[in-house]
């Protein structure tokens, strides 16, 4: 018998042996009409009380992002390139995913940084990325209550590695991509895509629980929120 069969056999026996007795002492408090078919109560908040992209939701997101020491830029649709340029700071080189909308990064300005498109023609190596100052991407969705931005690897966000190695990450969010709660966020995700959830710059609290922003991931997170026209 293989280890797999042996293990599954043991697990089946254990599940049967330890099944909670009906009305027994296992402290399960699921009860009443809230019980779903699987016996799991779901009384928690499933939807926000504010619509996606509404001013109240955006305010919460901004508050949370700034609490994480991310920098937030708000702009109108026509001003994205200008806001991104501000967000790029003094970065001299920028990598962008192949599907980033044209005009997001202004390449015409005399002081514009050098822009490299990942995958054109070849995907950049980690070592090559380590020499690039910044990355600009879009995002899939953002969750206001926790200040979380989710990337799902679509062409406007690119491979996971490009948002990991450069030290500055500029995320361009459209206001309508910002939802209030986690259930709304998770509902928008495609599970089988590689997903990266980002809540502020990388950080550690490993030394005396004192928070230090910026360790291995980008030390600088800039979020450009594009308000509806």
């Amino acid at each position: 018998m293989s280890t797999r069969e042996e293990m599954l056999g043991r697990i089946r026996a254990a599940v049967a042996a330890g099944a909670p007795l009906a009305g027994g002492c296992v402290p399960l408090e699921g009860d009443g009409p809230d019980l779903a078919v699987d016996g799991v109560p779901r009384r928690y908040r499933r939807t926000g009380d504010q619509p996606p992209g509404s001013p109240a939701v955006l305010d919460v997101l901004v508050d949370r992002l700034e609490d994480y020491r991310a920098t937030v830029h708000r702009c109108a649709a026509a001003d994205v390139a200008r806001a991104v340029r501000t967000a790029l700071g003094d970065a001299r080189s920028v990598v962008v995913p192949p599907g980033l909308p044209d005009g997001t990064v202004d390449t015409a300005a005399p002081d514009a940084p050098e822009v490299v498109v990942d995958g054109r023609p070849e995907p950049l190596s980690a070592v090559a990325l380590d020499r690039i100052d910044a990355v600009v991407t879009a995002a899939r969705v953002a969750c206001a209550v926790t200040g979380t931005i989710v990337l799902d690897g679509e062409p406007d966000q690119g491979r996971r590695v490009i948002t990991l190695i450069p030290d500055r990450h500029v995320v361009v969010l459209r206001a309508e991509q910002v939802v209030q709660t986690w259930p709304e966020t998770v509902a928008l995700l495609e599970p089988t895509r590689p997903l990266t959830m980002i809540s502020g710059p990388s950080a550690t609290s490993d030394i005396e629980l004192s928070r230090v922003e910026g360790v291995h991931g980008p030390r600088n997170l800039q979020v450009v929120i594009v308000d509806p026209a």
């Binding site: 590689p194 997903l195 959830m197 809540s199």
Partner: peptide
């Protein structure tokens, strides 16, 4: 998890992956 663990609203990074994604990772 994050609120109970590090006492943050959300931890900086959560990665999710499903098997192998061609060209990524």
């Amino acid at each position: 998890l994050p609120r109970s663990s590090t006492g943050e609203r959300m931890n900086p990074y959560t990665s999710l992956w499903t098997g192998v994604t061609p060209g990524d990772g």
